[in-house]
Amino acid sequence: MTQSELTISRFIAAPPAAVWDAWSDPAKLARWWIPAPIICRVDQLDLRPGGGFVTRMREEGATDFQPHVDGCFLEAIPDERLVFTTVLTEGWQPVDPWLALTAILTFEAKDGGTLYSARVLHKTPEESAKHEEMGFYEGWGTAIGQLAGLLE
């Protein structure tokens, strides 16, 4: 691990195919992708290289959805691996996001379940530190816990 990346992993007592399904179904993704009680809306989920990935979030009681992720998938290998970035949007269009990152998600079959790992790369160590200070481990950990709760 370099100073410009953050990683988090968790064992989920469900097979990789179930984890992939929870990622590939917009209704399921909306249930776990953002820590509750924040509400997630999936606007685009095109799991192919160059496909768009757009989610929005809304605080409980608020009326408007705010930006969450506006990105592009770089790789999608069913039941194994997903890679997305926020520095590109659908069709490889370059953008200057509020938080530049590339996330490498792996779903490794292990002990009858899945070792779910997220490796999040940032442009600089400072950007990585900023993401960590924003609550990376708490936020991503909560979301992965919600994924486990959905599947186990």
Rank of each mutant, 00 (worst) to 15 (best):
E5N: 05
E5A: 02
T7A: 08
I8G: 11
F11A: 14
A14V: 12
P16E: 03
A22G: 03
W23Q: 02
W23L: 05
A27W: 04
K28I: 00
L29K: 01
A30Q: 02
A30V: 05
R31I: 01
R31D: 01
W33C: 08
A36I: 09
P37Y: 08
P37N: 12
P37C: 12
P37G: 06
I38A: 02
I38F: 11
R41E: 15
D43M: 00
D43K: 01
L45P: 02
D46Y: 04
R48P: 03
R48A: 15
R48G: 11
R48S: 14
P49I: 10
G50R: 12
G50C: 12
G51A: 06
G51K: 05
G52A: 12
F53C: 11
F53K: 07
F53A: 06
V54F: 00
R56L: 10
R58Y: 00
E60M: 04
G61A: 00
G61Q: 03
G61T: 06
A62T: 05
A62W: 00
A62V: 00
A62E: 10
T63D: 15
F65Q: 07
F65G: 10
Q66P: 09
P67F: 11
P67H: 08
H68G: 03
V69H: 11
V69K: 10
G71F: 04
F73P: 00
L74G: 13
E75G: 03
A76S: 14
I77M: 02
D79N: 14
E80V: 07
E80M: 06
V83C: 06
T85P: 00
T86P: 04
T89D: 01
G91K: 12
Q93L: 08
Q93C: 08
P94C: 08
V95Q: 12
P97A: 06
W98S: 15
T102I: 00
L105I: 15
T106P: 02
F107M: 15
F107L: 15
A109S: 15
D111F: 01
G113S: 11
T114V: 09
Y116T: 08
S117M: 03
A118M: 14
R119N: 12
H122E: 12
H122T: 09
H122A: 11
K123Y: 01
K123R: 13
T124R: 13
P125I: 04
E127H: 03
E127V: 04
S128K: 13
S128C: 15
S128E: 11
A129T: 08
K130T: 12
E133L: 13
E133Q: 14
M134H: 09
F136S: 12
Y137F: 14
E138K: 06
W140E: 06
T142Q: 11
I144Q: 08
G145A: 08
L147R: 10
L150H: 04
L151M: 07
E152S: 12
